[in-house]
Design a protein around this nucleic acid. Structure first.
Length: 480
RNA sequence: CGGGGUGUGGCGCAGUUGGUAGCGCGCUGUGUUUGGGACGCAGAGGCCGCCGGUUCGAGUCCGGCCACCCCGACCA
């Protein structure tokens, strides 16, 4: 619990972000640089993210497994692009049991290598395909600069790894899981995301193609919130993942990998949060309904608590995540602010008047102040709250979508204007995809291409930077 | 690694020309309070980031180191 005010977003967005996390008790800094302690409230949010994703993975035929944290260094080196991409950020164990290790062990930055090793043992025939595996795990990347949830040296995620008989099947899987991420982001986290393909410069080194979902944060910076790779046959060749086809010919598999991490929590904070603090999307909120009892004396207390307990049981019975704030010696006003800061979607106040009137005061987090508070008859209250949670979920998505759309600006053939746009928003424009253009744009604007959206009209234009013919449009933005 | 900042009770901070550490919040006890961040009274809590130097005496001055935060480069 904290009574401190939160820095206004307009004053200092970074400070607002870290204030919210600490005051809402999502996470603490750890004694090790770049690491974080995820506190119960933050972890509960992660658990709901996990549940919603895991359900979707199972529904699309995937199974969970677990692979080791330690990976022989030579495994990592097998796939050259992968190794070169990751080597600067590897944590390597060189001593174990007091002895210098013959075989140095890498703490996994991702598990393509060790899973590839297993896949080569598991897969022999086309009958073994497709192989659809997911794991929930922690990974470590030695980052130079870290921020709570957005980039920490150790983070939690899921990584899906699949093997297929053909390129097209792998591509289909890659896009299917991208779609799963988008569905999750939009319908559970209420974050409008754009599905797209990364430029060659931005794609994962070991991948044929990298796709991502991109979201706009409250400061108009972009956040890559989920990633899906078609790895081609690169890993299959490096790890000898082969199968005999129907004609008894040995073929290399086509593999994919896709991941979504605790970074998503940062996305939720920065998409929905306001100057009062967090605003949790109801479907993921650790607490959906907080009940604050109000009373002056023992006589009132017993009457109020009777009504509160009954409502609590009813809401809980309806499947809602509900809690009663029974803390003594805190004023109701303090509790209102406290739970608003922590983003609980619906607050129910029950005092002597409400007991008498057979009603309750219901306040919604997405509408600030008195406008969001109304008195609701006790009769039908549970149904009203359930409906309200649905409304809030929809409203958060609508607000975020409106904000995003208001800050995306289409532009053609005008680099000067492009540069202006990108200072405070996203630009949507023709892009040749070339490395030189990308590098120059980055140098000029501290912004990069986010993706070529999958959903775009066919056409042809001129690259915003070099003017060469371009067949695709891309989003450009400053990014986390 | 470059630039900027900060290290003093749990948190936020003050601490004058060097004289043996204080405020607010929080915490404990207690009483009055309670419909938008309550108040009184009584308490507990500190190796002033670390090491060294100057000095009769260092939170304060000097030297060195370390850590963390913010902004870049790198990255999900």
């Amino acid at each position: 619990m904290s009574s401190q005010a939160i820095t206004a977003r307009s004053e200092d967005y970074s400070r607002w972000y870290t204030d919210v996390i600490q005051r809402a008790e999502l996470a603490d800094y750890a004694p090790v640089r770049g690491c974080m302690i995820i506190k119960p409230y933050g972890y509960a949010l992660w658990e709901h993210i996990q549940q919603q994703l895991d359900r979707r993975f199972k529904d699309t035929g995937h199974e969970n497994a677990y692979f080791p944290l330690f990976i022989p260094e030579e495994f990592i080196m097998k796939e050259k692009d992968n190794f070169e991409g990751f080597s600067p950020e590897l944590a390597v164990v060189t001593i174990g049991g007091g002895e210098v290790l013959e075989q140095r062990l890498v703490v996994r930055p991702t598990s393509e290598a060790i899973i590839g090793h297993s896949f080569s043992n598991w897969i022999h025939s086309y009958r073994d395909l497709p192989l659809l595996i997911n794991q929930w795990a922690n990974v470590v990347r030695w980052e130079m600069r870290t921020r709570l949830f957005l980039r920490t040296m150790e983070f939690l995620w899921q990584e899906g790894h699949t093997a297929h008989a053909t390129h097209d099947e792998a591509e289909e899987e890659t896009l299917k899981m991208l779609g799963v991420y988008a569905d999750f982001a939009i319908n559970e986290a209420a974050i409008p995301v754009i599905q797209g393909r990364k430029s060659n410069q931005e794609r994962f080194a070991g991948a044929l193609r990298t796709y991502s979902i991109e979201a706009m944060m409250g400061d108009k910076k972009a956040l890559q919130s989920g990633t899906s790779h078609n790895l081609g046959q690169g890993f299959a060749k490096a790890f000898d993942i082969k199968y005999s086809d129907r004609g008894n010919q040995l073929q290399h598999c086509w593999t994919t990998s896709w991941g979504l991490s605790t970074r998503m929590i940062g996305g939720i904070i920065m998409t929905h949060g306001d100057d009062q603090g967090l605003r949790m999307p109801p479907r993921l909120a650790p607490i959906q309904v907080i009940i604050v009892p109000i009373y002056k004396n023992d006589d009132e207390k017993s009457k109020v608590m009777e009504a509160v307990d009954a409502l609590f049981a009813e809401l809980k019975g309806a499947g809602l995540r509900v809690r009663v704030d029974v803390r003594e010696d805190l004023t109701p006003g303090f509790k209102f602010n406290d739970w608003e800061m922590r983003g609980v979607p619906v607050r129910v106040e029950i005092g002597p008047k409400d007991v008498q009137n057979n009603a309750a005061a219901v306040a919604r987090r997405d509408v600030p102040g008195k406008a969001g508070k109304q008195f609701v008859p006790r009769e039908g209250l549970v149904e009203r709250i359930k409906a309200l949670l649905v409304e809030i979920q929809a409203n958060l998505l609508a607000q975020a979508t409106a904000f995003r759309d208001a800050n995306i600006h289409p532009i053609e053939n005008d680099y000067a204007r492009f540069r202006e746009i990108i200072k405070d928003g996203w630009a949507y424009t023709w892009f040749c995809g070339g490395a030189e253009c990308e590098a120059k744009i980055k140098e000029d604007n501290q912004a990069v291409s986010r993706c070529f959206p999958l959903d775009q009209e066919k056409g042809e234009g001129k690259c915003i930077h070099c003017g060469a013919p371009a067949t695709e449009r891309a989003y450009f933005a400053k990014a986390y």
